[in-house]
Nucleic acid binder design. Structure first.
Lengths: 169, 169
DNA sequence: ACCATTTAGTTTGACGTTCAACTAAGATCG
DNA sequence: CGATCTTAGTTGAACGTCAAACTAAATGGT
């Protein structure tokens, strides 16, 4: 964002007001939830990416790097990465392209299946992953702007939403 | 997304596990919150955009259209739109470009300030805004996947997060 | 064995978002 | 009045995301 002096009111509360005035009372809470999540996503992503930028990473690439770092062998098929991070195959291709360009990951052929490509984290990749995780922990995750009880409530509620959306189990 | 059979476990719960095993207990809840919001954003946006696609709209453009529809005069300066929706000026330019291309909005010169451009919603724009709002209400907002009490909790917690991030007041 | 189907990745194109650089016009002040 | 901010929008480049089309390789049924 750029020219951001804060608003004098909560724009989402205003939208709820508008929704109720239009007679859409039943939909107002859902609208508020969707809008809140959209805006919170924007805020958190901005913070995360700002922390990661000095390291030459983005959150999307960081997630791939950590996934590979945590995997025992340090290498996973592209498709597996997409499933775990729940993103489109094209997004995985994009992320791996950039990570490979920076020498943090290398593409390897699968030993038995000629269709699949393995993404393998490099030494540099592991080093940067650890540094990035520490930066993110202290810069963002350690204090996310609301107290622990609320954090847990939100995480639990969103887990249920994700579950109902067919994300897992 | 494309090849989506559900995972057999919650990938975010797994990530929390990994974080704790790495000794990053203090950061684990924050990491879970950020990741949950990212993924929920993805799910909700996909649902919203799928509902809006038959109408030729996206959520970004829908928000602009509703903002103009709710404004009494039906027209607002570009900058005002960006402030209210909390997006970058370039995003407003982009959205208005597409809305104007489709005849839903028209750019007007400001009567006294030669720098500012007003975006004015058209008759077609108002018609489509109403149709889109109804579609979204019944298709997404009326049932967002978690019960009303949880919705309110999440909205309240995220309002506090947004407030602490300097979004408003 | 062979042809049809499925699966894995990549490529291309459309959208949205941001930042940086740039143009134009209003506001300030000596 | 003129030189210098400051503000409003636009443009172009970089990223990320997805869908659709396409290639290549494995599977399966007859």
């Amino acid at each position: 964002m750029s020219s951001r002096r804060p608003l004098s009111f909560d724009p989402i509360a205003e939208a709820v007001e508008n929704w109720r005035n239009a007679g859409w009372d039943a939909a107002a809470p859902g609208m508020a939830l969707v809008t809140s999540v959209m805006r919170t996503h924007q805020i958190l992503l901005a913070g995360v990416d700002a922390t990661l930028a000095p390291l030459g990473l983005t959150f999307a690439r960081f997630e791939v790097l950590m996934l590979l770092d945590f995997s025992r062998s340090g290498r996973l098929p592209m498709g597996k990465i997409g499933q775990r991070l729940q993103v489109h195959p094209a997004s995985v291709t994009n992320a791996i392209d950039r990570l490979e360009r920076d020498g943090l990951v290398a593409r390897r052929p699968h030993p038995t299946d000629g269709r699949t490509t393995l993404a393998a984290i490099t030494k540099d990749g592991r080093r940067l992953a650890r540094r990035a995780a520490r930066a993110l922990n202290s810069g963002v995750f350690d204090d996310v702007g609301i107290d622990g009880a609320q954090v847990d409530q939100v995480v639990a509620a969103l887990a249920q939403l994700r579950h109902n959306a067919g994300d897992f189990e």
